[in-house]
């Protein structure tokens, strides 16, 4: 067990955990930030996607010891009032079915639009390809990302 100080959603947290603990479980078990989801634990499904310095990462496969000075953002910190353009577009297109994967989808989409504010349909689909939605909301996800890109 070691002490780590990490920045999540612009707040500093100190946690005493094993150095190999994935950020996902630090968020969920220790910080009680439960919006970030466990799906596979091996960076295959994208349910655990968060931002590290604005880039989308898979928190299930990212050990706490690698965080260092990086600023982490989770779904809870994406916007103060839940009104990030991607979140608003998700509501507009009523994307969610079960909703479990959607935090990861939204975080991935927000990171995409950060680096490419006007993606084509194909670029959206390519960028979102790593996030599994078992309910099959992909066509709505793509429409919502396109909509968000227009309202950024």
């Amino acid at each position: 067990m070691s002490l780590f100080t990490i920045s999540v959603n612009n707040e500093k947290y100190q946690v005493d955990v094993d150095a190999d603990t994935p950020v996902l479980w630090v968020l969920r078990d220790h910080l009680k930030l439960l919006g970030t989801k466990y799906g596979c634990g091996i960076a295959q499904c994208g349910a655990c996607t968060i931002h590290a310095d604005g880039n989308a990462i898979r928190s299930c496969s990212f050990p706490i010891s690698s965080v260092g000075e990086m600023k982490l953002t989770t779904i809870e910190g994406l916007s103060e009032a839940g009104d990030h353009p991607v979140q608003k577009a998700w509501i507009k297109f009523d994307v969610s079915q079960c909703g479990y994967c959607q935090a990861g989808q939204i975080m991935n989409a927000a990171a995409l639009l950060q680096r490419n504010p006007s993606p084509s349909e194909r670029e959206i689909s390519q960028a979102m390809n790593g996030n599994i939605c078992r309910c099959g909301t992909y066509t709505r996800i793509n429409k919502a990302v396109m909509e968000a890109s227009k309202t950024l």
Partner: peptide, 23 residues
């Protein structure tokens, strides 16, 4: 008519709605 998912906003903001989130 089309009524939006009643949990839609909670889902997109990461509220703890799911079984795995119950502690």
């Amino acid at each position: 008519k089309g009524i939006k998912n009643v949990d839609g906003q909670k889902i997109v903001t990461g509220n703890p709605l799911f079984g795995l989130d119950y502690n």
